[in-house]
C-alpha cells in the first residue's frame, strides 16, 4: 500500500488565519487567559499549541504557560503493536491542579489519542476543565469526544489520510494535505 497525494486543502496563510480565529475563540470562551495552560500532544500538537500561545499573546498581551504531553504510555494499542514505541518526556511547566487546560493536537480522527491524553493529564493532577483545540477535524469518531475549537472541518473517507506539515518538524512550508491509500 502506498500513500498518494490527492489535494492540498490548506496553505500557510489559511492555517494562520484559522489559528488566529481559534485563538480569539479561546480568549472569548474563557473570558481572558486567567488559569489557562496550553498542552500540546507530541508531536504535531506541540507547534500548534505554540502558535495558539503566540496568537493569544498578540491578542491579550498575556503569556499563557505551555506544556508538552507524551501519550505513548497511555495508548490503547500497545499490545497490538509488534514493538514498543519510544517514550518521550512529558514536560508541563506548572501544576495542572485547578487550571483550564487547552489540549492541542493537529488532527482529530478516532478520538483515541485524545482519550489517552485525558488520562495522562488526569495523572498529573485535577484540572478545573479540559478543552480541546485541533487544526483539522476529519470525522470518523470511535469515542464520544468532540473538539471545542476547530480550525477546519474536512469530511474524509476511510481511505484518505490527513497530513499536516509544520515547518518546525517537517522542514517544509506549513500545509495540510489529503493523501489517499492506494493498493500497489
Amino acid at each position: 500500500m502506498i500513500l498518494q497525494p490527492k489535494a492540498q486543502i490548506m496553505d500557510k496563510a489559511a492555517i494562520d488565519r484559522a489559528l488566529r480565529r481559534v485563538a480569539h475563540e479561546i480568549v472569548e470562551k474563557n473570558q481572558g487567559t486567567q488559569g489557562l495552560v496550553f498542552i500540546g500532544i507530541r508531536r504535531r500538537g506541540v507547534p500548534l499549541a505554540e502558535r495558539l500561545r503566540d496568537n493569544v499573546r498578540d491578542i491579550e498581551g498575556k503569556e499563557v504557560p505551555l506544556g508538552v504531553l507524551d501519550i505513548t504510555l497511555y495508548r490503547d494499542d500497545l499490545t497490538t503493536r509488534s514493538d514498543a514505541p519510544e517514550v518521550h518526556r512529558t514536560e508541563v511547566p506548572c501544576s495542572v491542579q485547578g487550571r483550564k487546560i487547552v489540549l492541542c493536537d493537529d488532527v482529530l480522527y478516532t478520538g483515541r489519542t485524545v482519550r489517552a491524553a485525558l488520562d495522562a493529564i488526569m495523572d498529573l493532577g485535577r484540572p478545573q476543565a479540559i478543552q480541546l483545540a485541533v487544526l483539522i477535524d476529519r470525522g470518523h469518531r470511535e469515542l464520544p469526544i468532540r473538539a471545542d475549537y476547530v480550525g477546519k472541518n474536512v469530511p474524509t473517507s476511510g481511505r484518505e489520510v490527513i497530513e499536516v506539515k509544520f515547518k518546525e518538524i517537517d522542514d517544509t512550508e506549513d500545509k495540510v494535505l489529503i493523501v489517499e491509500k492506494v493498493e500497489e
Binding site: D77, T80, S82, A84, T110, T113, A116
Partner: peptide, 15 residues
C-alpha cells in the same frame, strides 16, 4: 509491544 503480525502500521508511531 507484543502484537506481532497484527502490528498497527501507522506512521511515526502516532495514533
Amino acid at each position: 509491544g507484543g502484537g506481532g503480525e497484527e502490528a498497527v502500521a501507522d506512521k511515526g508511531g502516532e495514533v
